[in-house]
Design a protein around this nucleic acid. Structure first.
Lengths: 405, 405
DNA sequence: AACTTACTTCTTTCATTGAATGAATTAAGT
DNA sequence: ACTTAATTCATTCAATGAAAGAAGTAAGTT
């Protein structure tokens, strides 16, 4: 367990620098006086802190606020161009890369394709090339690269920076962080799985801006879960948030690719369509089968295909049970639904809510918000960048690797 | 959300005092030099800190360690008699009270009976009388009472100090903390539900001493869950850890007292015995029925009653599914099973483990320990006391009510 | 309209505080 | 002679708060 750091002058200095910086980052533009009201620091102290932050190019002054009865306040802004962050998403056959500023604003997007099931070494060297190319082509100084955030599917141990297992990539126990760090020795590298990355985007720019305890559930080809506690993402024993998709929904139900039976993922994702279509093909000689992908089933449902409509609705009901169990187990304030399925929410939203809202806490008048994400597809990049950014600006109160900005 | 405190000289002082005190509490007896090695504090600083802690009667010196090649070290101990804590457990028809020292060591136990469904006011006044009586009878100074920990069943908001709902007591939204505080104005009061209290005992004295992330599941009349993350108990939106017993096991299964259907609690606790016995009474005219309590069913099973044996085993299987879902969702390092059912574990242990160990993480070679508690019944008292003690000695890094010791 | 006076708000300056620190010292052993 | 433990003391440095300075508003006076 990470122990608290011992108190010292450096500690209070760092705490206060980061605290002020985070207030500026989240409430810019803002004056010294306003900051002083929010945190218990005298304006005098703030003047010194500002001088330092300005000298480090982390903030700058922009004009003045209109007077509120006295001298006008000078406004401070976070310098989002203080450095760059690279956000990387490893998919099945391509690497998506984005260059962002220090606020997660996307400056540039690229991708490289690769053959399925490439080795980790090869992928890392592709990443290296890609990142170096971006900096040279854009004529930017790579020494201003302050962090790299990597998102991947599968089971990821973010503390160790390892991909424990990704069936998509067929990787096991790959120390991605250290492999990338070898190529960029001075740059802090962070790895996490997709859904946790997306969750960071929800935290900073989406539905989670005002909530401290919530869950993010992704629906699409599979089922993902991210747990946010006190505005921090929860990691279990090995770092994975958990494998909610592989909780049991039906005792002795459809066999799952994970080796268990009756997993929720078999009933509340694309797999359900696949399972049911197979089943019907066996039973119904007149049935010709159809594409089991979300988009195809949704299209059929929209075209009044009764079978597709029932698939969607049943999937929604199952998801509802999954969400209800999450609510009853963890009592979150809110659940945010994200992923490909969100596009087709009109086909199953009612069913999800009917079951999920009928939970234990609702019976004692405690409502749990269930909402669908409003973020755009770009948010994967934002999330990857925030993976690095949020760590870089974290108040360093725990003993650990110190990372200088 | 609780914000981090702003750095100041007082903060570093408090952090270090508590850090040192907690090292002594957990590793006593210990020398200054050894503490210096463990936390990043110079021995000189420690000398000053020790003087202060000694002056406050929080620690004392006891003899010397044997030499390790030089001057012998003076050993320091935590003064567990520095004050008293009262631990209270509210049950259906009685209040159990214990007086403990500052280590949670039980000095005295008492109980008062009351009529079922008493009002909260009446119970609180009973508590007041009881506590004052203990101090006067034992001839102890009540000003040395440093904390009160209260455990109750039901949904408890520990942050607000409220019992949101207890069906056992038929209470709703009772602000227990403030009600007790009125009677003992200077004493910090903490409320939580039973299982979280027990979990504290496991953390400090039981199976959780070396684990940072684990779950505690209680089985008995009902089903309880407590989630420990980074050695802290997790609280959801309203403060309750969650209502794991009311997650769905069987779609459209037995109706539950909570209003839902097919809740795990109906299948993996005494309720299952009750349900099955009722069912058999209807179906089987020769069957005479039996007591559905854990002890009775266990006794019958031990006397080779096949039906009772199957009840136990099936209950175990269901519990296994519940645990498997918890493992897959939260990926804990360990699950500790506590409660009345532990006494009869030989009747269902195999079934629980067979299902629970067949989880997602086990398939990628990540084992989850499943153990049965070894603590004694007394541990409720220890837990209640630790509720207060652990808060009193927490490093005060978050903005909040300051509580002086 | 120009000027004065009183008041507010924001920022900077500077001497003071106090907790940690590290070097030196003392103490007590092998 | 060498180790290890504990204490003492001058030093350091981040925060602090009082005071001064800067720059505005509001209202009355000339």
């Amino acid at each position: 367990m990470k122990a608290l750091r011992t108190g010292s002058k450096e500690l209070i200095k760092e705490i206060n620098r980061f605290k002020v910086l985070n207030i500026i980052r989240h409430q810019q533009p803002i004056s010294r006086a306003e900051i002083s009201r929010q945190c218990e620091l005298g304006v005098s102290t703030l003047s010194y802190i500002m001088d330092e932050l300005k000298a480090q190019n982390l903030i700058y002054e922009v004009g003045e606020a209109s007077s509120t009865g006295g001298r006008k306040a000078k406004l401070l802004k976070f310098n989002e161009n203080h450095g760059y962050v690279v956000s990387i998403k490893i998919e099945e056959e391509q690497i998506l890369t984005a260059l962002t500023d220090m606020e997660g604003g996307i400056l540039l997007k690229t991708y490289v394709a690769f053959e399925k099931k490439e080795s980790a070494e090869r992928i890392v060297s592709l990443i290296e090339k890609e990142v170096k190319m971006i900096f040279s082509e854009q004529d930017k100084d790579i020494s201003h690269l302050l962090g790299i955030g990597v998102l991947s599917s599968g089971l990821v141990n973010r503390h160790e920076g390892e991909i424990i297992r990704s069936s998509m990539l067929e990787w096991e126990n790959v120390p991605v962080t250290s492999m990338i760090k070898e190529k960029f020795p001075r740059v802090p590298v962070f790895v996490d799985n997709n859904i946790n990355g997306y969750t960071l985007a929800e935290l900073e720019k989406g539905e989670g801006q005002k909530d401290n305890n919530f869950l993010v559930v992704s629906i699409g080809a599979g089922l993902g879960l991210s747990v946010v506690i006190d505005r921090k993402i929860y990691y279990g024993a090995v770092g994975g948030a958990g494998e909610f998709g592989h909780t049991n929904l039906v005792m002795g139900g459809y066999p799952c690719h994970c080796g268990q039976e009756g997993c929720l993922e078999m009933y509340a994702s694309e797999f359900y369509f696949e399972n049911k279509i197979k089943e019907r093909l066996k039973e119904d000689p007149t049935y010709e089968g159809e594409d089991h992908h979300f988009s195809a089933v949704a299209k059929a449902a929209e075209a009044d295909d009764m079978f597709a409509q029932s698939l969607m609705k049943e999937m929604g009901t199952h998801l509802g049970y999954g969400l209800r169990n999450l609510i009853n187990t963890l009592n979150p304030e809110k659940i945010i639904i994200v992923g490909e399925g969100v596009k087709y929410k009109h086909l199953f939203e009612r069913e999800v809510l009917a079951i999920a809202n009928d939970n234990f806490f609702e019976k004692v008048s405690i409502d749990t918000d269930i909402v669908f994400s409003h973020l755009k597809d770009d948010s994967w990049f934002t999330g990857g960048a925030l993976l690095a950014i949020s760590q870089l600006f974290q108040e360093p109160i725990y003993e650990q690797m110190k990372q200088s900005i």
